[in-house]
């Protein structure tokens, strides 16, 4: 028996919007720790890891570990039927082949339940080692989204170069080239507006912009984004989900033959 009651149902709606274009089908894993997911895109270039900790739910009952295969497009269709202020409860029976999403309006005058068919998904689970990254950049998530969107109108790939001086995003295309440099800036009114660059050593990596743009669909989940890089390793783009956990995107770099 599984029953997870999330007061801020809009968080789950935003999570689905953030990942449904990257991943078609995924297993949601439920354990005493929380509600989580790890899934790769079809080309195995990008991976999303989601964690919503048990403590973040108003009620969290998970009698035994459960893995539920869901089509994310269908799940998104169902969650779009929940109001932004609704409380969302996820319910499933052990060994059942459906999951139920229950939506309660804030003043309890409307209660809906949507039952969705589960599916069997063979998913590869990758072991991601704990890594000390050589460059960690924290910046406003909207600024990061803006840069990725702007550069993708010029080129297909972005070179992200981080040094003590700042972080440079560069692209080249048929019509020309572009560079955006962000310097560390901590003299801001609100901490979420700061750009903070922690560097152990300079890092420069090249990535496909279409994946970066896809990751920025998580922007509504957090005011800030953290980009962690080491030379010759996948980048991690992390959006913290307040009080609950995180959504992390891993993207393999393009590397010279």
């Amino acid at each position: 028996m599984l029953e997870l009651r999330l007061l801020q149902g809009s968080l789950l709606k935003k999570v689905l919007e953030a990942i449904k274009d990257l991943v078609t089908d995924a297993n949601f894993d439920c354990s005493a720790t929380g509600f989580s997911l790890q899934a790769m895109d079809s080309s195995h270039v990008a991976l999303v890891a989601l964690l919503l900790r048990a403590e973040g739910f108003e009620h969290y009952r998970c009698d035994r570990n459960l893995s539920m295969g869901m089509n994310l497009n269908n799940m998104s269709k169902m969650l779009k039927c929940a109001g932004n202020d609704d409380i969302i409860t996820i319910k499933a029976d052990d060994g059942g082949d459906t999951v139920t999403f229950m939506f309660e309006s804030p003043n309890q005058d409307k209660i809906s339940d949507f039952e969705m068919k589960l599916m069997d998904i063979d998913s590869e689970h990758l072991g991601i080692p704990e890594t000390e990254y050589e460059a960690i950049i924290r910046m406003p998530s909207q600024e990061f989204a803006r840069i990725c969107r702007d550069l993708s109108t010029i080129g297909d790939t972005v070179v992200i170069s981080a040094s003590k001086e700042g972080v440079k995003f560069s692209t080249k295309g048929d019509i020309g080239s572009a560079n955006v440099v962000c310097r560390q800036n901590t003299s801001v009114d609100k901490p979420e507006d700061a750009t903070v660059i922690e560097i152990q050593q300079p890092v420069s990596l090249t990535f496909a912009l279409r994946y970066m743009n896809s990751f920025t669909k998580a922007t509504p989940l957090s005011n800030t984004v953290t980009v962690s890089m080491s030379n010759e390793l996948p980048v991690v783009v992390e959006y913290k989900i307040a009080e609950m956990g995180y959504i992390r995107f891993y993207l393999a770099p393009k590397i010279e033959e």
């Binding site: 195995h44 990008a46 990758l126 393009k254 010279e256």
Partner: peptide
């Protein structure tokens, strides 16, 4: 030329 790597080049399968 740059080659797009996959995540399996960096992470191991459980």
């Amino acid at each position: 030329d740059l080659n797009q790597r996959t995540l399996a080049d960096f992470f191991c399968t459980n």
